[in-house]
Simulated scan of single mutants.
Amino acid sequence: MSQSSVLPVKDSYGQLSDGRNVHRYSFTNSKNVTVRVIDYGCVITDILVPDKDGNVDDISIGFDCIEDYEPNPRCFGSICGRVVNVISGAKFVLDGKEYKMPATFSSDEKQAPKHGIHGGVRGFHLKLFSSWIEDDKVKMKYVSDDGEEGFPGELTTIVSYQLTNQNELVIEYSATTNKPTLVNFTNHAYFNLQKHDYPHIEDHILQIFADKYTVNREDDIFIPSGELRDVAGTPFDFRKPVRLGDRLKEGPHGRGFFHNFCLGESGPLKHAATLDHPPTGRRIEVRTTEPGMHLYTGCNTIPHTKGKEGAVYEPFCSICLETQHYPDSPNQEKFPSIVLRPGENFYSKTIYTFSLMSQ
């Protein structure tokens, strides 16, 4: 083991309603950073980091127990798949054949669901993975059956978590299939650098290293139009640090941000974003091999949700920095492909680094 290694510890996190056991893995490094994950939905349940005065707080919103994570409608801390984000019309064409998935989402809450999102009715965020410790990593595996949630092919996915003594939370994804299919994963952690129960993110400062973003439709504000537009001169220009309180109401209809930012080609590890919180001095830096990062600022889809330690989560109480391929990629010819074919190995890596602004 290298000096950067942090060995995880395994314990029980209770049982699902059907009696299956859920396991938790805890990492604590030499810098007093602790990360805990469970093998149900590959959920990150806790991220505890020191502030500039040495006070340690949990900066990820979530729940106290498996009973609350079992439904997890907001995907708190989970892995989303086999295709994260939206698929317009809940259908796509692959190799000339149309496939349909369950419609579970609508941009207008008054309308019946008409789009697919986060893998379907029971996406990966609601699956119990097999799990084990391998050296200094926790690995979690799930085999998705051919036809599950409308997707073709048996897909074998392995997600690994690692915490280093450099305060890097490393998430790696790999997948193989026996038929052509679609793959697009992310972790859906919600951050508040003050503390998970802090009521807003207005005093956070965000920088995103992207020159373009994917424009959403005027008539369906969470669905991409297919256009890639320069961020210059728009509310989506985060190339220089922006105080979120000065920008949140500029999102569509004052609902914040639900938008993908274009980072460059898939493959190379690149700096996607930096999130700062001057009052505590905490910082998160995001690096990824993915071509996009989805910025989600809670909008109005977190209505008065009871969370851990008695917290109540409200709109705009947290921020998601979701590294992934672009939303609705199967239906957008200009977007990077998310097709995985037999004989190919999907691989993706994202690193969240926790530090202080003065460092």
Rank of each mutant, 00 (worst) to 15 (best):
70 E>S: 00
33 V>M: 05
188 H>M: 08
243 R>S: 14
305 T>I: 11
69 Y>I: 00
334 K>W: 03
139 K>C: 14
170 V>Q: 06
99 Y>C: 04
304 H>A: 15
201 I>M: 01
134 E>L: 12
122 R>V: 12
117 I>E: 11
185 F>A: 12
179 K>L: 13
75 C>W: 15
1 M>R: 03
215 V>H: 15
39 D>E: 03
241 P>E: 06
301 T>E: 14
208 I>R: 10
90 A>S: 12
322 E>C: 05
179 K>V: 01
342 P>G: 07
104 T>Q: 05
109 E>S: 00
13 Y>T: 03
178 N>Y: 00
317 C>Y: 13
303 P>D: 15
169 L>K: 01
304 H>R: 15
20 R>M: 04
249 K>E: 14
162 Q>R: 14
32 N>H: 12
241 P>G: 07
63 F>D: 03
309 E>A: 12
229 R>H: 13
215 V>A: 15
321 L>I: 04
233 G>K: 12
195 K>L: 02
301 T>V: 11
285 E>K: 09
239 R>G: 11
43 V>C: 02
144 S>D: 14
123 G>Y: 01
196 H>G: 11
47 I>T: 07
47 I>V: 14
288 T>P: 02
49 V>K: 02
66 I>C: 10
70 E>M: 01
232 A>N: 13
9 V>I: 10
355 S>D: 15
3 Q>F: 07
288 T>F: 02
88 S>M: 10
114 K>E: 12
338 I>R: 02
228 L>S: 12
88 S>P: 05
68 D>C: 08
230 D>H: 10
210 A>C: 06
142 Y>A: 07
190 Y>G: 08
313 Y>S: 06
206 L>P: 06
294 H>D: 02
26 S>I: 14
199 P>V: 00
76 F>Y: 07
97 K>S: 06
192 N>W: 08
208 I>H: 13
293 M>S: 01
261 F>D: 04
246 D>C: 11
128 L>N: 11
224 P>K: 12
232 A>Y: 11
64 D>L: 09
28 T>P: 00
99 Y>D: 02
58 D>E: 09
203 D>L: 07
37 V>Y: 03
317 C>S: 15
302 I>L: 12
301 T>A: 08
140 M>Y: 01
95 D>H: 09
305 T>C: 10
113 P>N: 09
310 G>H: 04
32 N>G: 13
114 K>P: 00
39 D>L: 02
179 K>R: 13
206 L>T: 06
218 E>M: 10
202 E>N: 05
298 G>K: 11
141 K>A: 11
160 S>C: 01
150 G>H: 03
57 D>K: 08
208 I>D: 09
170 V>Y: 02
158 I>E: 15
27 F>I: 03
248 L>Y: 08
211 D>T: 02
125 H>M: 07
266 S>T: 05
151 F>L: 13
141 K>S: 13
168 E>D: 15
172 E>N: 13
261 F>A: 00
286 V>D: 05
20 R>D: 07
290 E>F: 09
283 R>A: 01
186 T>W: 04
106 S>Y: 07
268 P>E: 10
88 S>L: 01
260 N>Y: 01
234 T>H: 09
261 F>P: 06
193 L>P: 04
13 Y>D: 13
195 K>R: 15
253 H>Y: 00
105 F>L: 09
261 F>I: 00
20 R>C: 07
223 I>R: 06
29 N>P: 09
